[in-house]
């Protein structure tokens, strides 16, 4: 096991270095409200792509894909996870262009939904989006504190406080501009580290041939590509990931932060390609862990079980840096995203000036960071909350996105489609399905139907609502959304 003090010191050095880059970069430019929340038109294609990858690929890629590889169906489940994670990013290739075309002065997804649909659906989407983002952040903190406790015995509060403290410092100071540049640095370091960890682990266990032989002998079911449960997992994970990512304000911020529509479309395409091998490499650790007999009811930490098993301590420190950078690049995005949602909405509902809004943005960033540190250090089982957040996303994203394209879709139709999808998803949700069954409905708990069912109902209901509606939304109305805040920001 690694030394706890040394591990924490390495984490501090990695975080201090990236924080210094973030603060230095933010100091160079103007520190306006726009730089804090929007950074409009400032990010090159590479920065946008690196930032998207850094934002969506958190420490969870060291936990969930390996767990899927070890416990939910081996290689098929990992492949499904990898491809499923790419789908939402591919969806943004056309959606980003549409958003930038109809709402060039926009700042947030809630700004869009309020202007496009009205207050009721806005409040619903606001709640779903903020709930998802906070659960994501809390899960990241919980995951990394558990991982560092496992490999080095670092107390969870220490890990949470160090990561939360550094990320808060540069995000509160430099806002989105700092988040974009630190995401880029963190991704540029994390990608080679993950490759090195995978190649190093393979080297230590005798290469791909030896790994294949061990898995084929000990756990051959993990190498089949036709395991029905694994295929089902690979299919429903697409819908679980899709809705949640579409309602991630951090992703929306990057749509406007990119320098051009062409570069943002390419950046989403490149990001979609990038996440596939990353998740595959991380997920293979689960297959290796299961074949080597390391997993004993703790498949969630398979990646780190392999690291502990095959790496000498000094190499395991590289994985600590990897985990910390993955969390930091995700956490800064979520902190800034929640602060931006709150501040943008405050600007709409009040006549607060730029200085007040800047203070609010920084205060919200601090509050969310504090809450994430406190929750993350507790080691709660946040998985159920995560599934619930994913369900809310799956039920909501169809009317939300199709509202950009279907002029006849109204607020009542959007709400009905979301609530219909949510009802179906909840009926199959573990813990709820039993109650529904007692009412006489033939359902049993199934994540497949939670995500596929809720998405399907929501999509069909959205299309039906648009077909029967007689209203016609004029998309030109979105053209002026955000203009007041843009004016205040750039003053």
């Amino acid at each position: 096991m690694l030394d706890a003090t040394l591990t924490l010191a390495v984490a501090v050095v990695a975080l201090a270095a990236t924080s210094a880059v973030g603060v230095w970069y933010a100091r160079r430019g103007e520190r306006s409200l726009d730089a804090l929340l929007t950074a409009r038109g400032s990010a090159s294609e590479g920065t946008t792509a690196a930032s998207i990858v850094g934002s969506v690929m958190g420490a969870w890629i060291l936990l969930s894909p390996a767990e899927a590889g070890a416990a939910y169906g081996g290689l098929t489940a990992v492949l499904g996870y990898a491809l499923g994670s790419a789908v939402p990013l591919l969806l943004f290739v056309p959606v980003a262009r549409r958003v930038r075309t109809v709402m060039p002065d926009g700042h947030s997804l809630t700004e869009y939904v309020r202007a496009r649909f009205g207050t009721a659906f806005y409040l619903f989407v606001l709640a779903v989006s903020v709930f998802y983002m906070f659960v994501f952040l809390a899960a990241e903190m919980t995951g990394v504190t558990a991982a560092l406790a496992l490999v080095a015995g670092v107390p969870p509060w220490a890990t949470a406080a160090v990561i939360g403290g550094f990320v808060l410092a540069y995000t509160a100071y430099g806002g989105l501009v700092a988040s974009l540049v630190t995401d880029t640095v963190q991704t540029a370091v994390a990608l080679p580290l993950l490759v090195a960890a995978a190649v190093g682990a393979l080297w230590q266990v005798g290469g791909t041939g030896a790994v294949h032989a061990t898995v084929a002998r000990e756990t051959p079911q993990l190498l089949t590509l036709t395991n029905p449960a694994a295929v089902a997992f690979g299919f429903y994970v697409v819908f679980a990931v899709l809705g949640a990512n579409v309602l991630h304000q951090g992703v929306w911020q990057r749509v406007w932060a990119a320098e051009s529509t062409t570069s943002v479309r390419r950046a989403f395409g490149v990001s979609a390609v990038a996440v596939v091998p990353l998740i595959l490499l991380a997920g293979l650790f689960g297959v290796v862990a299961a074949a080597r007999g390391l997993v004993d009811g703790n498949a969630g930490i398979s990646f780190f079980l392999v690291v502990n098993d095959v790496f000498p301590p000094w190499l395991a420190l590289g994985v600590v840096v990897l985990a910390v950078l993955l969390v930091a690049s995700t956490a800064d995005t979520v902190l800034n995203a929640i602060a931006s949602v709150v501040t943008v909405d405050l600007a709409e509902f009040s006549d607060a000036g730029g200085a007040t809004l800047t203070r609010v943005a920084r205060a919200v960033t601090g509050l969310v960071a504090l809450a994430a540190v406190v929750v993350g250090a507790q080691g709660y089982d946040v998985l159920t909350l995560f599934f619930l957040a994913d369900l809310l996303g799956a039920a909501t994203f169809a009317p939300f996105v199709l509202g950009l394209y279907l002029p006849s879709l109204g607020e009542r139709g959007a709400l009905a489609a979301s609530l219909g999808g949510l009802a179906v998803g909840l009926a199959f949700f573990p813990g709820v399905a039993g109650l529904v069954r007692e009412l006489g409905l033939p359902v049993s708990a199934s994540f497949f139907w939670v995500f596929v069912g809720s998405t399907a109902v929501s999509v069909v209901a959205t299309l039906l609502a648009a077909a029967v509606s007689e209203g016609e939304y004029d998309f030109r109305a979105l053209g002026g959304v955000g203009a007041r805040l843009t004016e205040v920001s750039e003053r």
């Binding site: 590479g46 990608l191 080679p192 993950l194 791909t208 590509l225 570069s263 490499l281």
Partner: peptide, 30 residues
Amino acid sequence: MISALGFAALVWGSVALTLFVLGYVLATLR
């Protein structure tokens, strides 16, 4: 069941793709 060759291709293909994406991102930075 995936063959040893297929498994190796999956692993090394993932490594190569990750490095390619990294190179592309760095080349399009400004």
